[in-house]
Design a protein around this nucleic acid. Structure first.
Lengths: 235, 235
DNA sequence: TCAAAAGTGTTTAAAGTACACCCATGA
DNA sequence: TCATGGGTGTACTTTAAACACTTTTGA
């Protein structure tokens, strides 16, 4: 069959912006780049798209290789395609952002990477346009989480309302009223109260909740205004 | 400098889903494909990314070449990258959706394309996965327009409230109360009433409005719930 | 017994929704 | 003069926001 002759072929990479939450702060998982150039510099984890895989599969593969995790929340953010963004050779990158439970991340023994969690407000200079990717991912996370219940993805299977509230407060850098917060969250009917308390963070202990996965999936696209004045966050 | 050896390079294309509104229905601008294979079949307009341009520039170029328009609302939708989506040769496509004033589209005399507007609810079978791109663009348009005032992009510079309402009703396939609609739209303070009436569509005539571009740009990312129950529309 | 965090209800304000009549005009 | 579409206001309901005290318990 005819080929598309005289057209330029380009390297394509998938890069992942991986978010985590340690109970206090939002974190970003970065790796020390193995390839030249810039070997040893901090970067997002990424890899070239292989002949037999789609971009989403490439992102999943890269994420799995680093963290050992599958079934992770992974969303296409956007493409980065300035011709000179990679000084070695033209590479178009498709950025994905991932939300993972930070406790689940176990560095693979046979990893090629040195990986580390950094505070999202203070992380090292990154290679190429990775800084811009992180900024865009942060904006997207804020935008999306203002309407969709995706922040659960950053918490363990069992979590408390105060933990969840801290997460929202951290993501949006605001303080929220716990009475209004719990009413709003519980009115979505996505959470089930367990008869177990978290005694680590207070004497009285806070009830654990878990996601009702069925309802979560069914209502995943539902829109709720979780955050006051979501105007501020855009995408 | 070292190159990234042994990595697969891939063709990259930008495809545009171009929406218009004729006053009654949403329209889709399609072209008859010039290239083999599938020459003569209907498809989205698109083109391969050139060495010196970004993906966004490629999309703008393709759109400009077809319509003669610049400064068009153009938003990256997502990538389409199944290895076998193009039977000739692997091509990753980045889909963009565009909103244009249908009256402004003048087919270029020297076009390579035969282009035509189709009703969004009834258009021919498209090549490859272009059908899927259109569906995704439609969903994104509904999602985005439920919160952001982007539908103005589909109207002429001067338009009336009844026209705008028809557009919303068409996009969401709902009927809206004109009193509530005008109150909500005007409360955004994005529109300026002109002292001129559209007498084409009624005897009494409806006042023309125009966008206050300054406020429009400033508030572009603002979030307003223009549509009741936006739950239904997602992205 | 007290310090620290968890849990809970009510009142008020704002936003959204439903609804019906008069107006201007050309045919 | 009448048929057609344009324009406007009000009452009601729902939702969001502000706000303070009691409970539990480990140290």
């Amino acid at each position: 069959m005819t080929k598309y002759n005289h057209q330029t072929k380009i390297l394509i990479a998938a890069d992942c912006i991986i978010f985590g939450f340690d109970g206090r702060q939002l974190k970003l998982l970065l790796v020390q780049r193995a390839l030249e150039p810039e070997a040893g510099k901090w970067s997002l984890v990424g890899g070239f798209v292989q002949p037999e895989e789609s971009l989403g599969q490439a992102a999943s593969r890269v994420l799995h290789k680093l963290t050992g995790l599958s079934d992770v929340y992974l969303e296409e953010l956007s493409t980065f395609s300035e011709p000179t963004r990679d000084p070695v050779e033209r590479t178009v990158s498709v950025a994905y952002f991932a939300l993972i439970d930070i406790n689940k991340y176990k560095q693979q023994i046979t990893t090629d990477y040195h990986a580390e969690w950094f505070d999202l407000n203070k992380f090292p200079k990154l290679i190429f346009d990775h800084q811009e990717m992180v900024e865009k991912a942060k904006a997207r996370l804020r935008y999306k989480a203002a309407f969709h219940p995706i922040l659960f993805e950053l918490l363990p299977a069992k979590f408390t309302l105060p933990q969840l509230q801290s997460l929202y407060e951290e993501v949006y850098n605001i303080e929220m009223d716990k009475r209004n917060f719990s009413r709003k969250i519980l009115s979505m009917h996505l959470l089930e109260k367990l008869d177990e308390k978290d005694k680590e963070n207070s004497k009285k202990g806070a009830w654990f909740y878990k996601l009702n996965k069925k309802k979560y999936k069914a209502n995943f696209h539902s829109v709720a205004t979780i955050i006051p004045n979501p105007d501020i966050y855009y995408s």
